[in-house]
């Protein structure tokens, strides 16, 4: 138990009639990134807020770094940091003032607080913006100051709640680099995200949550393996050729082929990669022109769809299989 960063049993949080979190069991080891993946309203944030002792669980128990989240909340607080979904810094203050404020609240003297604030501003590339109000920061800078505020005193565990939501690709990549740097250092990161590629890129293990319940858990590879060997995506040149192409693929691959929302697209879950080449040659020899095709492991998107059964455009897997 001591080497578990987070352990929960049957965590429940109810708001009115909705069970926002409906019996979540987690066992998260120390080190690395644990992804908490789910759509909006799945209960990710509520779970994180319970674990960070911001709200109290209605039922169930939880320990963070070995400390009980309700009876030893203060012990938890002194070891974890939280970067919330909305900027958890004071937008009226400057970047430097925000970091100094947090440093002072942790007990740094005025001088030490200034030193620490400058060190972090440098590291996060915010020195030029140090004396600007945070409300004048760009989205990416705001995220960076937010994460910087979370490591004013180095935490053992960092909760990151949707750290890249609403960021442009470049800022997103910067946040990913920051997260990787922290993990390299040895900080445990629990990351919520609704972006599957983010979980794929960063997380060692992933808990998939939907409607307040954890519906699957494993590494990205394991989760993907649970829905088959992979998927073939094909896009025909002309939409009236799709049916023809589908018949050929069904014949050659021996599996069902799904029509995607894209009127030119087809997707098939495949078990045997060897048949793909044959199927593609068949399409070619029968004169069906392809705009593009791709073959890969199922994406986490597909895993997610398979698990939740939510209707989404790019439905690629036709059977669900919870890990």
């Amino acid at each position: 138990m001591a080497d578990l960063a987070i352990e929960t049993h049957g965590l429940v949080k109810t708001y009115g009639d909705t069970r926002a979190v409906d019996g979540v069991d987690l066992a998260i080891t120390r080190g690395g990134v644990h992804g908490f993946l789910g759509p909006n309203g799945a209960g990710k944030t509520t779970t994180i807020r319970m674990l960070a002792t911001l709200i109290r669980a209605d039922a169930g128990t939880g320990t963070v770094l070995g400390y009980d989240i309700s009876s030893q909340a203060d012990e938890v607080r002194s070891r974890v940091s939280l970067t919330g979904q909305f900027a958890s810094v004071d937008e009226d203050l400057t970047g430097s003032e925000n970091l100094r404020l947090i440093a002072k609240l942790y007990g740094h003297s005025g001088k030490a607080a200034v030193r620490r604030a400058n060190e972090l501003l440098d590291a996060f590339g915010l020195s030029d913006a140090a004396d600007r109000q945070v409300k004048k920061y760009s989205g990416g800078m705001r995220r960076r100051i937010d994460i910087a505020a979370s490591i004013v005193v180095t935490p053992e565990l960092l909760f990151l709640d949707e750290p890249t939501t609403g960021l442009d690709p470049r800022s997103r990549n910067e946040v990913w680099d920051i997260i990787r740097a922290m993990v390299d250092f040895g900080t445990t990161v629990m990351l919520t995200t609704q972006y599957l590629d983010e979980a794929d890129q960063l997380a060692d293990r992933i808990s998939v949550i939907d409607s307040g319940k954890v519906i699957a858990e494993g590494s990205a590879t394991e989760l993907k393996a649970s829905v088959g060997a992979g998927a073939l995506h094909v896009r025909v040149m002309h939409r009236d050729e799709r049916e023809n192409a589908r018949d050929i693929l069904v014949r050659e691959l021996g599996v069902d082929v799904e029509r995607s929302a894209d009127p030119q697209g087809l997707t098939a879950a495949i078990d045997d990669r060897g048949r793909v080449t044959r199927a593609l040659s068949a399409l070619d020899s029968e004169g069906v022109g392809l705009a593009q095709f791709s073959l890969g492991q199922p994406t986490l998107d597909e895993v997610f769809l398979a698990l939740t059964g939510k209707p989404v455009a790019e439905a690629a897997v036709n059977e669900e299989e919870a890990a």
Binding site: E119, L126, T154
Partner: peptide, 21 residues
Amino acid sequence: AAPQADAIAQALANTERPPRP
């Protein structure tokens, strides 16, 4: 300016924890 991974690691390595205020 972009964030510096090594500087962040260095900042993290500073695990100084002042006494509780």
